[in-house]
Design a binder for these strands. Structure first.
Lengths: 178, 178
DNA sequence: GAAATTTGTTTAACATGTTAAGTTATCCGA
DNA sequence: TCGGATAACTTAACATGTTAAACAAATTTC
């Protein structure tokens, strides 16, 4: 476990794309995190250009999309639904508010909480992007197969549930005074 | 497609976590990109603490891991294997080099190309992290099931291939002078 | 009911993602 | 062989991911 593989000698070749260089680390590239990362990137690559043409990032789109389903929503709940961390969401909401795509106000009952809602301008933007987005999604479904897509999503959900209860062991390497 | 749903009235409740608030946008959260994102996050959440204890980020780990499989590798090829964009890789390599975990030198045949390799210090770090990483991976495999894991990865690879040939249509919204 | 604790959100700091532009080196055709 | 196109990085600029810390409002505790 402590030596390098691929007896390349001293790389005497130069135009050939040596076997060792053409396909390094097959095993690594097949790890679950890499598989998930590549699959997601393959999907998002389809959507990004359209979003970009409308001046939206993927995360901004997720937020606006989530807001269309509710009247108002609290920041923490929005973070959960759009799957964003608090700090990211905080920054993005600031920007979206400056662009008049969303509105915020503090809750009367609990002054710590912020309530967010989409503006009519935001709704119009969503409606402008949605057709293209839905067309892309339909094309993906068609190419991969609706049945397989459903099956894949079932497995992904099951994977999530399998790991939800798993302990997150950090090897206990922190200083003892903690 | 243009109206808000969930007739909440003016949210007269307060302790109840209204139905509309408890489960907003079920459909959105079931989209393929979100499913892939959540699944990957569920997996990486297991690995991050261990990596962090060794002073490594996920991307730095990917790079070092890829380097253990080869003697040297060119930057572009490394970007492909570790699935990182050029600019990200450029920055990370600068840091890893400063920490003496990798070495770089320009190729004699083509002065544009940089050749990267892992140092003995980098190898030692890998060997220190690997046991925990492999244990975590084994636990994930056990929880989810080895068979299902293989099946999932097959589907992910198939999804990638399905989308590889797909056109990336941007709606042609750019200015005409481009 | 004031101090201590907890909760909801934001700010800070650093690392990466993403696109565009810049640099240097190689290639290639007139 | 010269000059335009390409190629391989790198820098720059802005947005997000990630963890820690700050902050203010609410809740709990004594």
């Amino acid at each position: 476990m402590s030596g390098k593989k691929s007896p390349n000698g001293s790389r005497s070749d130069q135009e050939g794309t040596t076997e060792a260089r053409r396909m390094p680390m097959r095993e690594f590239s097949r790890s679950l995190p890499m598989s998930l990362l590549r699959a997601r990137e393959a999907v998002m690559r389809q959507f990004r250009p359209s979003l970009r043409n409308h001046g939206l990032t993927e995360q901004q789109w997720r937020i606006l999309r989530a807001l269309t389903a509710v009247d108002t929503i609290e920041v923490t709940e929005l973070a959960r639904v759009a799957f964003l961390l608090g700090p990211s969401l905080s920054r993005i909401l600031r920007d979206l508010e400056a662009r008049d795509l969303i509105e915020r106000r503090t809750a009367k009952a609990d002054l710590r909480r912020g309530e967010v809602s989409i503006t009519s301008k935001g709704l119009k933007l969503i409606e402008a992007v949605a057709p293209t987005s839905e067309a892309i999604y339909a094309e993906i479904t068609h190419r991969f197969g609706a049945g397989k897509l459903a099956e894949l999503q079932d497995m992904l959900g099951e994977l999530e549930r399998s790991l939800a209860a798993m302990e997150v062991a950090g090897e206990g390497e922190a200083a003892a005074d903690e």
